[in-house]
Write a protein that binds this DNA or RNA. Structure first.
Lengths: 204, 204
DNA sequence: CGGTCTCTTGACGGAGTTCAAAGCTAGTGG
DNA sequence: CCACTAGCTTTGAACTCCGTCAAGAGACCG
């Protein structure tokens, strides 16, 4: 397995570069980022959030990979999303309303994140126009992603959803066990196995 | 049917009140809203957006109801969302990237909307911190809604999704034909009919 | 080496679709 | 105001997609 915990560049610089694609930060704003985001090293299978807790941080993933999921009454996991390098992750509902979460966020690989507390993010929102703006854009992009996923879920069968997943997240397909991908697609891992068999037969 | 095209209060005031629940607008900001949002009366079955067009406006629904949907290769409609009084609607992907949309937005009831153009919204974003902030919040709420829907789609069967829809949107259940609701839930209207029959049998 | 997790496979059952037909409703035009 | 028509709703039979359960075969790690 790739155990590359060390990012190639400075994590905080990665974060600042991430903002640069929207509206770049001023020197002052960069200093605030450096002051308020703290780095955290996360081992595989460690949880950033568990059901019943309040989601206290908003996370920027520097390296590694996470899954956010719920567990139903039959103890089955349902993956809402994955987050790898450059992605943001949090349970907004819990984070903003400061209420207990129904979700888990767990490292599926050793990872490094930069985290910010609720009150510190509100401080940035209040004092710097640009953070409201940049986070608006970050969330808009996530919304488009979710919208496309809903459309896919209500309009196609599992075969097509798997093909789209392969195209959309080629960097994830070989990093995740297929049980996790099946959970994301809303099917059982047994059925995904049958889809893969059928597809590999067709290709050659 | 309720053909109440006339809203009970001034549409622009409704919009300003809608912002009030987040961060209320100053007099100056209210004036800008009055200047840049324009009212539009929409008859039933009229489209605000059709596939292939660029989504030129962001809409605030004053009265009436819309559906946003895609049409697949079998000419079937798939409802992404409904928007009634107080809701915002647009195809963000098309609106922000100024690219052709894959979606339709159609009035399912006679309606009144307030619309703003892309460039005017960017003007508000650029010149007033509060619009970036308020739209960030509006979109965060939509994101939570979408997230809950994805979780529901991947983790439950059609019976449960229909029960949740009834609880979540009681004001829509009797305004929409069940074909539209079935499309939103990702099932056929025939199957929804069977679900309803089963449920009505259980209740009494 | 033994345990745990992942992946595969098959037989069976259930959830949801397809197609066709019929009755019903509501909007439209004359 | 009636007649017409398009769309909505229901129902049933046959079918497909996908889940459940059980078993076995690898892969990895301590």
């Amino acid at each position: 397995m790739l155990e590359q915990i060390q990012p190639t560049e400075d994590p905080l610089q990665m974060l600042i570069d991430n903002f640069k694609q929207f509206f770049p930060l001023s020197t002052n704003e960069q200093d605030e980022v450096k002051r308020l985001f703290t780095q955290r090293i996360v081992k595989r299978k460690v949880f950033l959030l568990q059901e019943g807790e309040v989601c206290r941080h908003y996370y920027f993933v520097v390296s590694g990979c996470f899954k956010m999921f719920a567990i139903d009454t039959n103890f089955r996991e349902h993956n809402l999303q994955f987050a790898a390098e450059g992605d943001w992750i949090a349970d907004f509902q819990s984070f903003y309303n400061e209420e207990p979460s129904r979700l888990y966020i767990e490292a599926v690989e050793p990872a490094i994140v930069l985290q910010i507390q609720h009150k510190d993010l509100l401080y940035l929102y209040t004092n710097y126009h640009k953070f409201d703006r940049n986070f608006r854009i970050i969330i808009e992009r996530k919304l488009m992603e979710y919208q496309n996923r809903i459309l896919l879920n209500i309009s196609t069968n599992a075969d097509e959803r798997y093909v789209v997943f392969q195209k959309q997240y080629p960097q994830l397909i070989n990093r995740l066990p297929s049980t996790q991908i099946a959970s994301y697609l809303g099917i059982t891992s047994e059925f995904l196995s049958k889809i893969r068999k059928k597809a590999s037969g067709k290709k050659q």
